[in-house]
Simulated scan of single mutants.
Amino acid sequence: MAKILPILSSQLNIFFIFSFFFIIFISGEAHGFAKALDEKLFGLNEEKFTHLRLFWHDILSGTSPTAVQVVPPVANSSTAFGLMNMIDDPLTEGPELSSKMLGRAQGFYAAASQQEVGLLMAMNFAFIKGKYNGSTFTVLGRNTVFSKVREMPVIGGTGVFRFARGYVQAKTYKFDQNSGDATVEYNCYVLHY
């Protein structure tokens, strides 16, 4: 009996060690709060690269503005430093506001530079048409509005644009100095699954 106990003990130890590594192997990680997952289980098969060209309409004037000031700029700022506008801007297929509505740009922009008119843009492009209906991607970046072309990163998305990354290029199409209304062409280059 005395010889059997060490052998049995040794076999139990091997069993427990094997079980421990088997559990880690099955779960993918040794953390209780996270584990590795198979991308294929979530439909993440082939990454796609999509180009979208659309027009963003920022309307400050009239009875139904799509951009409203929520924080005024600091006094005596030539760059409107501190200004913050909340937006729900139309995204259309063409430069006319009457062209086909594709979605809305929802978020805010804030004047974040004291040296030039430079905005911090934080907005979701929320689509309402076709295969992109219900999908979004998020733009977060610096927009120096008087530059001919501005580039901002795409940092994520939902729906068709899940796991999105990429960039947008903004180019002013039309700007009314009296009203502040602007139409901006956005070329969006998005990698997604």
Score class of each variant (00 low, 15 high):
residue 1 M to K: 01
residue 81 F to H: 12
residue 149 V to Y: 01
residue 161 F to D: 05
residue 132 Y to D: 12
residue 115 Q to F: 06
residue 169 Q to S: 03
residue 109 Y to L: 03
residue 145 V to H: 01
residue 164 A to Y: 08
residue 10 S to G: 05
residue 107 G to N: 13
residue 45 N to G: 13
residue 41 L to C: 01
residue 4 I to A: 10
residue 152 M to E: 05
residue 131 K to G: 01
residue 159 G to A: 12
residue 105 A to W: 10
residue 155 I to Y: 15
residue 142 R to L: 06
residue 94 G to E: 02
residue 159 G to I: 04
residue 164 A to P: 01
residue 118 G to Y: 05
residue 87 I to M: 12
residue 24 I to A: 00
residue 21 F to A: 01
residue 183 T to I: 15
residue 162 R to Q: 10
residue 185 E to Q: 13
residue 163 F to H: 10
residue 78 S to L: 04
residue 59 I to C: 09
residue 164 A to W: 13
residue 177 Q to H: 08
residue 157 G to H: 07
residue 39 E to T: 10
residue 88 D to R: 13
residue 141 G to M: 02
residue 12 L to I: 15
residue 181 D to Q: 02
residue 26 I to S: 04
residue 75 A to E: 12
residue 64 S to M: 00
residue 25 F to H: 08
residue 62 G to A: 13
residue 169 Q to W: 05
residue 162 R to M: 12
residue 138 T to K: 03
residue 36 A to H: 04
residue 94 G to Q: 05
residue 11 Q to M: 09
residue 103 G to N: 04
residue 119 L to K: 02
residue 72 P to A: 07
residue 102 L to F: 05
residue 123 M to F: 08
residue 172 T to F: 00
residue 14 I to T: 12
residue 183 T to V: 15
residue 21 F to H: 09
residue 88 D to S: 12
residue 11 Q to T: 12
residue 188 C to P: 07
residue 30 A to H: 03
residue 64 S to Q: 08
residue 118 G to W: 09
residue 82 G to T: 15
residue 189 Y to N: 08
residue 137 F to H: 04
residue 65 P to H: 12
residue 52 L to P: 00
residue 55 F to D: 14
residue 73 P to D: 12
residue 6 P to Y: 14
residue 140 L to N: 11
residue 70 V to K: 01
residue 181 D to M: 02
residue 49 F to Q: 06
residue 37 L to R: 04
residue 191 L to H: 10
residue 108 F to I: 12
residue 171 K to E: 15
residue 98 S to A: 11
residue 109 Y to H: 05
residue 92 T to L: 03
residue 30 A to F: 08
residue 181 D to F: 04
residue 13 N to P: 00
residue 191 L to I: 11
residue 176 D to S: 05
residue 78 S to M: 09
residue 67 A to F: 12
residue 114 Q to T: 14
residue 58 D to V: 10
residue 18 F to S: 08
